[in-house]
Design a protein around this nucleic acid. Structure first.
Lengths: 121, 121
DNA sequence: TCTTGACCCTACTTTTTGGTAAGTTATTGT
DNA sequence: ACAATAACTTACCAAAAAGTAGGGTCAAGA
């Protein structure tokens, strides 16, 4: 049992999961790990099904936990770019593993997913 | 977009997360990765806060997805043992990474968590 | 015999999470 | 001038996940 910031965690894994748990966070992180472009719209377009509410909410939380950074490119027309922080980059083997596990599973079920293609369409 | 078994997934990572997402699954898996003993009661005792309902529900789902196996040791007094399948063992770097990330984070916040100790008490 | 512990299941409620739909500011393109 | 796009926010509502509280069997131990 670990107590931190008034919350109780089972173990360190539990602590980590509190940052990257939920339906979208790992997806966003792994997305930023793979795709060069990373504006708000890029993310939205590549995460089919995410609502704007969810996207900005999750981005905000990831930012608060220092897993992503945000560079403001211009203010007058407000333009930003999101990127992984060094901390989130430590988790890169995770994105790779989760992906290859998924690809392998899909293959077993007759779906051939080629990573290098124009995805998410 | 991937369609499998009438569900739609964003990408392979999403597929994988459908098996190990939620509040308890990764915790259970990483537990089975570290602790030798793995009866129902062992798991319950080492996952403080989990309800029996959640535990058996999650175990059932993990079993259905072939991430854990269950050996029935005896029937008359019903005794079982849970263990990771080969598939779940492919995810072992994940348990390690999530844990070390958590340990590191805790250290930054003044908590020194020693993995080899009698944990979860 | 009475209790305890292992190994569950079920109905019900609460909390958390996610989705819908709409609105905002500002700019570029037609 | 008007529509479209970027980058959001907010209020409200539905669904999913999780928690509560109980129930049940069987066997060993006090």
């Amino acid at each position: 049992m670990i107590t931190l910031h008034n919350k109780v965690y089972t173990c360190p894994v539990d602590v980590t999961l509190s940052f990257i748990g939920g339906k979208w966070k790992i997806l966003i992180l792994s997305h930023l790990h793979w795709v060069e472009k990373r504006s708000y719209a890029d993310l939205r377009n590549n995460l089919p099904g995410i609502s704007e509410k969810m996207l900005s909410q999750q981005l905000k939380e990831l930012e608060a936990h220092q897993l992503i950074g945000k560079e403001v490119l211009s203010l007058k027309p407000y333009r930003v770019e999101y990127f992984l922080t060094e901390e989130a980059k430590e988790l890169e083997p995770l994105y790779e593993l989760l992906s290859s596990f998924g690809v392998k599973y899909l293959k077993k079920h007759g779906i051939d997913y080629i990573k290098d293609q124009e995805l998410f369409k």
